[in-house]
Design a binder for these strands. Structure first.
Length: 443
RNA sequence: GUUCGGAUAGUGUAGUGGCCUAUCAUGGAGCCCUGUCGAGGCUCCGACUCGGGUUCGAAUCCCGGUCCGAACGCCA
């Protein structure tokens, strides 16, 4: 038996002019019951919106009315009835029910309010994410996230990129730097991968030419901030016969496309959140690392010397400076010291202490980093050694450079940070369904 | 990890030594109510994070634990 008859329409699909005498069936959750005595309103909520079901005492079967009055909030129901145009009703119509079927009754009290009358803290909401998602504001974030990823796929596909997937279980702690989560792989030790970096480069040797991947990355860092996760979603690309400037152009155009796409395709969700977007103007400002630290030093709150990484404060200082000057939130920092970038970043041929690397920033935080990569085997091996890593563990990677590796470049951008900066969300956990952080492993 | 702050009904809050058998909202139970859309009115229900201490008296002060938040650090 199919359950398709439990629903003929979403609440937003009902147009009283088109439906006419036809009966409709809605399925969803009991959002509210307002019993005024002689008239009773039941608000049914589904993924797309809400519909008002109206029962007038004089005109309604007593048993049905009593049933409706006793509905418990957030129970799952299927309601069949006729559609009546009614200017006094929300959306200009209401449902006059013939039948109300409770498919699963909710317990009471609820772990949190879904109507927007009483706030709940993030921790409470995450503990009861199933209930939190019934709040239109929470759902809207994830509908927008879907549109972001859809736009990324469309854009990159149109740019000639092939979607690929790399393993998340890897043998060695490859890149040094960040800590990895160790796991047991049958009788061996393995790790959860921190980035698809090495694999997407291998694909360049394989001749795939342009690849992208959207997938999870794992970082075992004990950071504890509003913008860090231990499991995040990375959007990564790698392109052959391209330098860092070529892929920066792809990146800024993609970000701008994503914003336009969301503005066109997520209007109700943006309205629900009260967010008004403007498309970032391309090309983004390109600051050199030198200019960036000069801005920080001129500002006087801290003193950076060449070779230092940017602190959180300095990121904000530079971001504010750029925003005040250009009115734009996004910008690049280019030409980083080779030493503070990963081993695979290509140094400038005529100036080895500077690399063909970049970070793409939002005025509030780093969104992306990328570079032209070293494609020469011996140079790469030397860089691995000079960063204190053991080239032995990189055999599977280095081999790909010995038999015809094209010059290539790429970047990775954090999906959650892209979404949170777009929507002005303060805590990254708000844009992940089930965040994994220092403190949270469940649900 | 460091520093600072916090924990009161299901949820969100007020309450800085006695006036607290603890405030308000939301919620739940019940009654009234024919146009609600955060419906309204009335009645009732429901809580001081845990352990120790100070005090005649502790939600309130002190010590410790647990959990949470913020900033910073860490983060190719």
């Amino acid at each position: 038996m199919s359950l398709a008859k439990l629903r003929t329409h979403y609440t937003t699909q009902i147009n009283p002019d088109e439906v006419g005498e036809e009966k409709v069936t809605l399925a969803g959750w009991v959002h509210e019951v307002r019993d005024l005595g002689g008239i009773c309103f039941v608000v049914l909520r589904d993924r797309e919106g809400r519909s008002q079901v109206t029962l007038v005492k004089k005109k309604t079967d007593k048993e049905l009315l009593d049933h409706a009055r006793k509905l418990i909030r957030e129970s799952v129901v299927s309601i069949t009835g006729s559609v009546k145009p009614e200017p006094k009703a929300p959306n200009g119509y209401e449902i006059i029910p013939d039948e109300i079927t409770v498919l699963n009754e909710a317990e009471s009290p609820l772990p949190m309010d879904t109507t927007g009358k009483v706030d709940a803290e993030l921790d409470t909401r995450l503990d009861s994410r199933f209930m939190d998602l019934r709040r239109p504001k929470t759902l809207a974030v994830f509908k927008i996230r879907h549109e972001v990823l859809k736009a990324v796929r469309t854009f990159l596909t149109n740019e000639g990129f092939i979607e690929s997937s790399s393993p998340k279980v890897v043998a060695t702690a490859t890149e040094g730097g960040t800590s990895l989560f160790p796991i047991t792989y049958f009788d061996r030790e393995a790790f959860l991968n921190q980035s698809p970096q090495l694999f997407k480069q291998i694909l360049m040797s394989g001749g795939m030419d342009r690849v992208f991947e959207i997938g999870p990355i794992f970082r075992a860092e004990e950071h504890d901030t509003r913008r860090h996760l231990n499991e995040a979603t990375s959007i990564d690309i790698e392109a052959s016969f391209a330098d860092h400037f070529d892929v920066m152009e792809i990146l800024e155009n993609m970000v701008s496309f994503v914003y336009s796409h969301v503005m066109e395709n997520a209007v109700p969700s943006l309205e629900t959140l009260g967010v008004e977007l403007t498309v970032p103007k391309t090309p983004f400002l390109r600051l050199t690392y030198k200019e960036a630290i000069d801005i920080v030093n001129a500002h006087g709150e801290e003193e950076l010397k060449w070779g230092d990484d940017l602190s959180t404060l300095s990121e904000h200082t530079i971001g504010k400076h750029v925003f005040d000057k250009t009115g734009e939130s996004h910008y690049f920092i280019i030409d980083w010291p080779t030493e503070i970038k990963p081993f695979y970043a290509m140094p400038y041929e005529d100036k080895w202490e500077i690399s063909k690397s970049f970070d793409m920033m939002h005025r509030t935080m780093e969104l992306s980093s990328g570079a032209q990569r070293i494609h020469n085997h011996d140079l790469l091996k030397g860089r691995i050694e000079s960063q204190g890593l053991d080239p032995y563990g990189f055999d599977f990677y280095l081999r790909a450079f010995r038999y015809g590796m094209p010059p290539h470049a790429g970047w990775g951008i954090g999906c959650e940070r892209l979404v949170m900066t777009m929507l002005g969300v303060e805590n990254i956990r708000d844009v992940v369904l089930f965040p994994r952080d220092r403190k949270r492993l469940s649900p």
